[in-house]
Design a protein around this nucleic acid. Structure first.
Ligand SMILES: [Mn+2]
Ligand SMILES: [Mn+2]
Ligand SMILES: [Mn+2]
Ligand SMILES: [Mn+2]
Lengths: 222, 222
DNA sequence: ATTTTATTTTAGGCAAAACTAAAATAATAT
DNA sequence: ATATTATTTTAGTTTTGCCTAAAATAAAAT
């Protein structure tokens, strides 16, 4: 009667949560299978089990949705993941492109006490190293007004507060052009041809970024 | 061909290592089964597998012994366990009786980089919160001259540097009589009747301890 | 309204890590 | 030396979490 979830089960809930964030409608079996690199039948099996455990509501053939309880657990995993990422960067000096895989392991450590003490130790950070908000102990997420860099109006000033793509390749690219969280930018121009943008930095350096790159950077009004 | 071990396999190696520490001879299937609270046939199965992976040398019916490689991994697990215990007490203010179970989980996190950075962050501690030595990155253990409290000669002075029983019950008992690592003691008397001892503390307080208790406390000459 | 295609589920299997019951082997006692 | 007891291994199951192939269902195209 141990109703704590396995690592596999936890990972499904996280994946479903992530998909819910991006989509309005119910999440399909294939969505989950693709996201997790797992065959669809394996997902079907697991959905049956998670439905039994009341973690998801599941209508055969018509997709799934997290229950309140399932969402609670998903948020607690995200909380743990992001707090550990802060620990790794702030305390152990890892770079922001190195922390995700380790946090994927650490997020499954089971101890509420641990994670609450860790949060305090870190000074109750509100955002992780990629600018993603950290849910509080009750699962509440602080939302911040942010837009994509490409949405800035001409001459508008802003600060980089997050990234959409958190993969190492993109993050290292940002490092290489010296963009990081906190960097101040000003929109100079949107190129009509391919939606590339030109931004100006505090040191007056001008930088051209592709549409795709600019879409993957979140900014807040300066 | 992923030659990294499962958590179950790692736990077997740790158990075998612990038993080797206490015994001279080969470790029996039952020894392991008892220590891990697992049925003997399950152990037999696993031993076959670990032998195949060259982690142990295994003579059917005649017990096992860790190979160099198996020992290496066992020490790296002990290293991780003890460093995490230091982190939990020093940085997150856990009590010494609360850290073991969480460290049992954390020791299985896979990242050499992580543990080496953690060690540095903690200031390369040589001992864990229970006074157990922490192996270095190469698996080398610093040995310290220590004896059991009951072995002190009359009037001899010493410092408490470790405990043999690291269970919460014993540790909380020590807390309750205000004995901890670093406490200075002087042997006053060994009671002939039952080998109880009387020790004197820095504040001149005198304390009577049973033979069993005194055997579970390690001290070094002051 | 059918047919075709895509998605999802069911069926059947496999490997890991545990279990119990039974058989094999070693250790001990007579 | 043989019989008894204890230990260990083998045999056969179970659960979890994955897989592929086949069947069922839904969605899309004609
Ligand atoms: Mn991450
Ligand atoms: Mn992140
Ligand atoms: Mn411990
Ligand atoms: Mn310890």
């Amino acid at each position: 009667m141990d109703h704590s979830l396995s690592i596999a089960e936890e990972n499904y809930l996280k994946a479903i949560q992530k998909l819910s964030d991006a989509q309005i409608h119910k999440i399909s079996t294939n969505d989950i299978a693709n996201m997790m690199n797992i065959a669809a039948p394996s997902v079907s099996d697991m959905l049956k089990k998670l439905a039994q455990k009341k973690m998801i509501s599941y209508e055969k053939y018509y997709g799934v949705k997290l229950t309140k309880q399932g969402e609670q657990i998903a948020f607690s995993l995200i909380r743990k993941h992001r707090l550990w990422e802060v620990f790794l960067t702030q305390k152990l000096n890892f770079a922001w492109d190195e922390v995700h895989d380790i946090a994927e392991q650490l997020e499954h450590i089971k101890s509420d006490d641990l994670i609450n003490r860790l949060e305090k130790f870190l000074g109750s950070p509100k955002y992780d190293p990629h600018g993603d908000p950290i849910p509080d102990a009750k699962g509440q997420i602080q939302v911040r007004k942010q837009i994509q860099l490409n949405e800035l109006k001409k001459n508008e000033k802003a600060v980089i507060v997050g990234v959409k793509d958190t993969g190492a390749v993109f993050l290292q690219f940002l490092d290489s052009i010296q963009l990081s969280l906190g960097t101040k930018v000003q929109m100079k121009n949107v190129i009509e041809f391919d939606q590339s943008i030109i931004i100006k930095l505090s040191d007056n350096r001008e930088l051209m970024l592709s549409h795709l790159v600019s879409q993957n950077i979140f900014v807040s009004p300066a």
